[in-house]
Each structure stands twice: as C-alpha cells, then as structure tokens.
Nucleic acid binder design. Sequence first.
DNA 1: TTCCAGGGGTAGA
DNA 2: TCTACCCATGGA
Length: 319
Amino acid sequence: MKLFLPALPDFNLVSAVCSHGFFVLAPNVWDPTGATLTTTITLNDEQAITITIRAADAGILVEIPGALLSSERSQIRAAVRRMLRLDEDLAEFHARCRASATHAYAAESGFGRLIRSASLFEDIVKVICTCNVTWRQTVAMVDALAGHWGVPATSPSNGARGFPTPNRLARVRESSLKRIARLGYRAPFIQHLARDVTEGRLDLEAIERFDGSTDELCRLLRQIHGVGPYAAGNLAMLLGRYDCLAIDTEMVRLLRILHPGRQWTPAAMRAHYEAWRPYQFLAYWFELWQDYTARHGQPREWQPEQVGRAITTRKAGNI
DNA sequence: TTCCAGGGGTAGA
DNA sequence: TCTACCCATGGA
C-alpha cells in the first residue's frame, strides 16, 4: 500500500536526506539513482516494517508492503514525519538566507531539514556513537547495534532490522556491546540510557515535547550519561532547536579554512554565528555542506547519485 | 609507537 | 568554572 504525506512547498527530499550523515546509518539505505530512502521502522519490541520513501508532488510517497492496521499506519506516518521534519516550518530561516550573500542557496535549495531518526532514543544512541571516533567507526557501531539487536522486519521478512528498542538494548550485556558493537567506553552510557528509559527514570517523550528555553533543554540532555556540550548541541538541533552550536573539531577546521588567521575559541565561534540566532546551527551546517561539496568538486545543485557515493565512501565523513 | 578522531566524566583547584 | 587526566577503538 502507499501513504501520501503532504509537505511544505520548500520541502526537498534529497536535501533533507543527504545533508546530514545520519542517512548512511542503519537502518537507512539511500538509493542515489532512484532518489529513494528505504528504512525499517520499529513499531515495538517484536515488530518492524521496511518502507520506501520517494518524492511526490507536494509531499512524499511512502510505500509499505502489505496491509497494515490503522494504528500501525499512524505509527509509520509519525515516524516518517519525524525523520524528515515534515512539520517544520523553515520559512523565516529561508527568508534570512535569501537576504544573505553567502547563504542564499540554502533558501533556493530548500536546505535545512536535516534527517533525524524515527525516535529520540535512536538519535541519542547515534549521537553518542559519533563522539571521539571517526565517522567510519560510527557507521560500524550503528550497523552492529541494528544488526545484532535490532527488531527483525516482519513485513517483508527481508533480513532487515529496525533500530533496537530501549527494552532490547537494556537486556544486552555491557561486555557484548563492547565486544560485538565495538562501543568501547560508550557501552555503559548506552546501556544506562536504555535501562533508564525502560525503567522509567528518563522520560524521552517529555524531552521531545519540552517547550522551555534551549539552554534548559541542553541542561536536561546533559543529565544523560555520555551527553556533554557537543552531544547536547547536536541533540538540540535534532529536536529542532538551532540556537545552540555543537562545537567540535570539525567546526574549528571549517572556520580556520573560511577565515584564516583568526583565533577560534568556543566564544569566538558562538559570536561568529550570533547574527543568525535562532538558526546558528543551520547557518553553520550550510557552510559545512558547501565546503564539503566544494572540496569534492560537487556542483551546487543537489545531485543524488554523486552525493550518495561521495559520502558513503569518504574516509572520515562529517556531514 | 604515537597521535588523533564530529568528546565526556571525574577529581581537584 | 577551568584544567588535567583517563576513558576504548582503529586508522594513519
């Protein structure tokens, strides 16, 4: 069966999927030739469904094998809307981009809906897996987590797995997380996270709905073991808050290239993007994306085939 | 062998 | 709040 999900006029599927590295992490599979995203959505501890998403007029089309209960359809709609941020209005950001000499193309191309996971739990695990490792190791860790403890797809039964639920990860031994998924010192962080969610000590739905300030949100996120300033900034971005930068070595590298000779302390980096408030993260990410495409000889236009190949084969990707 | 990669926790000042 | 030190892993 097929589900149509409407999107805002500036929605761009290729941009939404390919402008953040999460699109190459399991259970996502991007087909650059057909410009389709195949992923496996976890419905519960035992049930997951593989779907394919493609662009359609005024929205996206979700192809689902077989028939589903109405509740299952609702879950898939919600997961896809979250992943692709279909409800996020970026009109103000794009208006400011149009007035900018450096960021005009962000508006032109519909840049800004950076892909995220079907759930906040999955986002947190993945962000912890990006800390202090190369991108290749992140990909391997997430592959192993989904491959060993993910929920097998029941429809179709194709060997694919949805990302593991907190329940499933809470039951895995820390030593297994280290040995099989090569999580290293991240293993206890992820096990604590899964157990805190499962045993009711951490309410991720409350964090998802949180409507206080971004500073307060980051303080909440930093209470999670393994989440520091960088991870909190990244998670805030994934939650749709762009006014908290995730300062890391990659940001320093980019700013040294764009503005040679300047000293880039964290305070200097925050001050540099302050003019974009509350869209500092998106303004930075667009510059990072442009630098990436420039270094790899990409044209400014989105070219799914080149984008997919370039990112999946680079040695230490960071988009 | 050493350093570093999209850092984070902890102890001590 | 800041600094030093330690924490796995794997590639260069």
